[in-house]
């Protein structure tokens, strides 16, 4: 590098490879997925179970939702596309609550309830919200991109998974499809937990 005489404001360009590299590699290419794509029952895998407290301190145990269709949404207060979906989910919760359906939100905010509680109130979210962490993320295959939304059938199996924002009617079609499925459908794709007819599996 040639020697440089310094003035009061010496301007230097410093190439920060680390920063540029980190920003570039952390971005995964999204896939566009606007079609409802509920898996065939035989292809569905059991949903990992978790127990976390909601904003009121009540325990939310995913396996307790057996018999219901569940829309499980990973989101965060800083996530713009998630914000678009929240009114839809609020609407679904209201529309389908009497048809054995529930929305559960898993907020992935680092500061937990400090951000999430006021956000729930401001956005009038009418469904159960828990705060997730790395452990929960790993259970579901390392949830990194938000929103990530899973549709869970009545047997506790993952019927579909969407990474990124999809159309409202995509969710709607999937909810309807899962709600209309016979309740006593054969559990050919499920792996019941020991001593149970339920397909949710518990970590460890």
């Amino acid at each position: 590098m040639p020697a440089q005489t310094l003035s009061l404001h010496s301007v230097r360009r410093w190439t920060l490879f680390a920063a540029a590299f980190a920003l570039m590699v952390s971005c995964t290419v999204p896939f566009r997925d606007d079609d409802a794509r509920v898996k065939n029952e035989k292809e569905r895998k059991p949903t990992p179970d978790f127990s976390l407290k909601d904003s009121t301190g009540s325990l939310v145990k995913l396996s307790d939702f057996k018999g219901k269709v569940v829309l499980l949404n990973f989101w965060a207060t800083w996530c713009g596309p998630c914000k678009i979906e929240i009114p839809w989910f609020t609407d679904f919760q209201k529309t389908y609550k009497d048809r054995e359906f529930a929305v559960i939100g898993v907020a992935m905010d680092e500061d937990g309830w400090d951000s999430v509680k006021p956000y729930i109130e401001q956005h009038k979210m009418n469904y159960r919200i828990v705060v997730g962490d790395d452990k929960i993320s790993q259970l579901f295959g390392s949830v990194d991109s938000l929103p990530t939304t899973l549709m869970i059938d009545r047997e506790g199996r993952i019927a579909s998974m969407h990474i990124g924002l999809v159309a409202k009617n995509t969710y709607q079609k999937e909810i309807e499809q899962l709600l209309e499925a016979p309740k006593d459908a054969p559990k050919t794709g499920a792996v019941p937990a020991p001593g149970s007819q339920f397909a949710f599996v518990r970590p460890n």
Binding site: M1, L6, S10, V11, W14, T15, F17, A20, C27
Partner: peptide, 25 residues
Amino acid sequence: MPKPEPVPAKAGASVEVKLPVQLRE
């Protein structure tokens, strides 16, 4: 990854440093 070259600066003076950032398309 190559290390960035040191920025020359004089004690008691001011120095300006530009940090380039590039995001994926």
